Computed example of a mutant assay.
Amino acid sequence: MRQDEIQINLHGAHEAIDPRAVAEAIMAVDKILRGIASDSPASFSVSGLSVGSAHISVRGDHYRVATVNEGLTTLSASATIPAGWGIESVTGLVELEHVRLRRGVEGVGLRINEAITAIDGVLAEHARQSIAPPPPSLGSVRGKLYRYNNDAKRSAGLRDYRTGHVVDVHFPAHLTAEVRSALDHEVEVWGEVRRDVEDRVRSISIAGIEVFEESRVAVTLDDVAGILGPGWTGGLDPVEWVRRQRD
């Protein structure tokens, strides 16, 4: 087979395999390929199809196919996102393993060149673990509080000043007044932080909140009175000085 092809093998008795298994397997492999980081456009096509068991060949580009092959080796051994793979690729592999639950499918495998990989429960579990979010930890987030919902979930939205991303804020009942009064202000909140697999803060269940003073305070007439000093009119009465400016 060609070096830019992946062959999907759905093992099962002739005329027994659910046709949805074929469609879902093709979509899963398409997702795996599209999640591979590459400068070349993502363009794939079905290059072969045969039945008995179902064998479908998908043609892409050599780099992506080789990266998929190397990634399968990595995930066979450990729960690590393979080099060059994105989360979408790993998710596609998990979805491919689900195809074996379709009627008539006795097993799923991928063939790339001479390498044949069984897409089984062990491989899928490694894939799931590799993209599982880390456990909650204690931490803090600083940014502008711009959304507030005093519903049963008691939630708010905060735009993290470091990343620009929105962080969901959950707060206990006794902090309701403080959170409401902090709306549209810059704040720092601390508590139990949840991150995604890319270490981005997605939400925080807060134990406390601090509001920072606004950087710009409203200016009143009293604040500017006398700012020019007593000699700004050159000895003239202020009314006379204004009249001369108009003239």
Rank of each mutant, 00 (worst) to 15 (best):
M1V: 10
D4T: 05
E5M: 14
I8A: 03
N9Y: 08
L10D: 01
H11Q: 15
A16H: 13
A16G: 10
D18P: 01
P19C: 07
R20N: 10
A21R: 03
A21N: 01
A21F: 05
E24N: 05
A25K: 00
A28C: 04
D30I: 03
K31A: 01
I32M: 06
I32G: 02
I36F: 04
A37S: 12
D39Y: 08
A42V: 09
L49S: 14
L49V: 10
S50D: 08
S50L: 10
G52T: 12
G52Y: 05
S53M: 13
A54R: 01
H55Q: 11
S57M: 07
G60M: 00
G60C: 03
Y63C: 05
R64V: 04
V65Y: 08
A66V: 07
T67N: 08
E70W: 10
E70D: 12
L72G: 04
T73Q: 12
S76W: 13
P82M: 10
P82L: 09
G84N: 05
I87R: 06
T91M: 05
G92W: 00
L93F: 02
V94L: 05
E95D: 13
L96V: 00
E97W: 00
H98Q: 14
V99S: 03
R100S: 12
E106D: 15
G109T: 06
G109L: 04
G109F: 11
G109Q: 07
L110C: 08
R111W: 11
N113A: 11
E114D: 11
A118W: 07
A118G: 14
G121W: 15
G121E: 12
G121Y: 09
A124D: 09
A124V: 01
A124S: 08
A127L: 05
A127Y: 03
I131V: 07
I131D: 07
P133T: 04
P133W: 02
P135S: 01
P136V: 02
P136M: 04
P136G: 06
S137T: 07
L138F: 15
G143Q: 00
Y148G: 00
N150M: 09
N150C: 03
R154S: 02
Y161D: 12
R162E: 15
T163N: 07
T163D: 01
H165S: 08
V167Y: 02
H170S: 06
F171C: 03
P172I: 00
A173I: 14
A177H: 09
E178W: 03
V179Y: 01
S181M: 15
A182W: 01
D184E: 13
D184K: 07
H185W: 11
G191N: 10
E192K: 09
R194W: 06
E198D: 10
D199S: 04
R202V: 01
S203F: 05
S203N: 02
S205V: 15
S205Q: 15
G208D: 11
E210Y: 07
V211A: 05
V211R: 08
S215K: 13
S215V: 12
V219M: 14
T220N: 08
D222K: 12
D223C: 12
V224C: 04
G226T: 07
I227T: 02
L228T: 13
G231W: 15
G235M: 00
L236C: 07
L236G: 04
V239W: 06
V242A: 07
V242L: 10
